[in-house]
Simulated scan of single mutants.
Amino acid sequence: MAEIIKAKVLLVDDEELFLTTLAKRLEVRGMQVSTVTRGKDAVAMVDKQAFDLVVLDLSMPGMDGLETLKQIKAKQPDAEIIILTGEGSIRTGIEAMKAGAEDFLQKPVNIVELVNKISEAKDKRMHILQNKSVKDIEQILQTKAW
């Protein structure tokens, strides 16, 4: 049986059959998955709700994955993003990592590897959110004269 991971994931890919298939494979593993086929829709979706992870195709018509990554990171710097591509190069992967991607995986993606990366990214995001909460509480305590 597949490992169950409670994570909220946004999949972004212009290949609808790939997107649908991958979404089903992740949902079977307990994830709540939203899908969009365009970069600008991904940016809008991230504005509306929080995701544990965005899995983003690099090569898309219109706004490509790299530009989508940059726009998401500009709005939500702590967003966890994994780049997926069938046409990636080492240079492109490095550029995506410099722009803030958590990881860079080649298509066809190994589902076990992707699930492991999602689990790692969710753990990292939870740690970041916990630290932020602690800092927020400390700030509140310092400003109150209790």
Rank of each mutant, 00 (worst) to 15 (best):
D13E: 06
R38A: 15
G62W: 05
K73M: 02
K24Q: 12
Q130I: 12
I94K: 07
F104E: 06
V12C: 00
P108S: 09
K124R: 09
P77K: 14
M1H: 12
H127Q: 12
V112D: 09
A2D: 09
M63I: 13
G30K: 04
A99T: 04
D136R: 11
E102C: 10
F51R: 00
M97T: 15
E95L: 06
Q76D: 14
I94F: 01
I4L: 13
H127W: 05
M1I: 15
M45F: 11
I4Q: 15
I111Y: 13
T20G: 03
A145N: 10
Q139Y: 11
L129V: 00
R29S: 14
R25G: 06
N116D: 15
E102P: 00
V112F: 07
I137L: 07
G30S: 02
N116H: 11
K117Q: 08
E95Y: 04
G100H: 07
L56C: 02
T143H: 12
A7Y: 01
F18L: 13
G39N: 02
A74F: 05
G30H: 00
L141T: 07
L53E: 00
E138R: 15
R125P: 00
D123W: 09
E138S: 08
E3P: 09
K70C: 03
K98A: 13
N110M: 05
D103P: 01
Q142P: 03
D78A: 12
K70F: 01
D78S: 10
E80I: 05
A7T: 02
E27D: 01
I81R: 04
K6Q: 13
I137N: 01
Q139H: 11
V9A: 08
M63R: 03
W146V: 14
V33W: 04
I82Q: 03
I82P: 03
A99D: 06
T68H: 07
T85G: 05
G88H: 02
I137K: 06
I90T: 11
L11V: 03
S119N: 10
I118Y: 06
S59T: 15
M31N: 08
T92Q: 15
I90C: 07
S89P: 04
M31A: 08
Q71D: 10
M126Y: 06
G30T: 03
Q71E: 15
K40D: 15
I128Y: 12
L10H: 01
I90Y: 08
D14P: 02
K48L: 07
G100L: 06
K6C: 02
N131F: 09
Q142C: 11
T37Q: 13
S59Q: 13
M60H: 01
S133C: 07
L84P: 02
I81M: 03
Q32W: 06
M31H: 11
E87P: 02
R38E: 13
I137D: 01
K124G: 08
M31L: 13
E87H: 14
L56W: 00
L56S: 00
L84T: 08
I140S: 07
K107A: 10
E27K: 14
S34H: 10
L129A: 10
I137R: 04
